[in-house]
Nucleic acid binder design. Structure first.
Lengths: 145, 145
DNA sequence: ATAATTAAAGACAAAAATATCTTTAATTAT
DNA sequence: ATAATTAAAGATATTTTTGTCTTTAATTAT
């Protein structure tokens, strides 16, 4: 469904949301370990997610690292997809046609649009914080151990 | 959702199902034109789909080309995904975790599994023929014109 | 038989995605 | 001020995906 980059982005974001705060930041090593992601590659992805401190914030130097504000934690999961430029997965034609629409549907259009709408709703209503809470409560996991 | 290869495979299969029969075969050019796909690349993909004549059949030489038997046309759309080795899209964890399961779910697992099940059902119940009929009846389209 | 036609097979090329490594800049603690 | 620490930025490498081109083999019509 998503690229590796986006999978790593989602996992890192959820982990940072759960573990960090403005006075408790996380290093790249801790994040990549906890989410089973390649550290250097994850660092690159976090550079994107910290652009404009939109989703993730960071500070350099000793005791620095990555963290999220409470405000950012309350963003919908879809914001991560938007930044990673994978929101299109939620909109595209399942057969890859550019002009697939109600007026000129592909043969899977009418059935797939119902599923697509549920995907959109899921990513737009679920917040990052909600996913993070499930991990904190031990109801969900973010690694492969 | 799917790779370009699989998108081309699905479009080509649906087109061949609609236009061909054992005594009316289609050339690669006709297929790639009708489905807005790169001809040489599509030829490669058809080589996979014709392996063992499982889904698509072909004969070489004059008046040769690609076609489908009535039996093959009645296969579920999922058979194309299986051959293209993209059936995993219907099974994988949306966050890319290898060990995501009921016992050790990712934080999106419980909500996403409902959507995933609908995708599986869609691809397993819909037949290639059904999609092809929609095109024949002018209810659906397979190109970008 | 021969020539024409068509897909199959294989080699190659380009682009994109994934991953790593090194250098730089910012921040902090001392 | 200095040294240590950390992310940012940039360069490079590897792998995968996508795409093209050429040669081969099969089939058919003449």
């Amino acid at each position: 469904m998503f690229s590796k980059s986006t999978e790593y982005a989602l996992r890192a974001t959820i982990y940072i949301a759960q573990k960090s705060s403005e006075n408790c930041k996380l290093g790249i090593k801790a994040i990549s370990d906890a989410t089973d992601s390649p550290p250097h590659f994850t660092a690159k992805i976090l550079q994107v997610l910290t652009k404009n401190n939109k989703i993730i914030s960071s500070v350099r130097g000793p005791n620095g690292g990555f963290y999220m504000t409470e405000e950012a934690k309350s963003l919908p999961v879809r914001s991560v997809l938007d930044v990673m430029e994978e929101d299109s997965v939620l909109e595209r034609c399942i057969l890859g046609l550019n002009k697939c629409s109600e007026a000129k549907p592909c043969p899977m259009h009418s059935q797939y649009k119902l599923i697509k709408q549920q995907l959109i709703t899921l990513f737009e209503t679920k917040t990052i914080m909600e996913l993070a809470s499930d991990i904190r409560d031990g109801e969900a996991f973010i690694n492969n151990d």
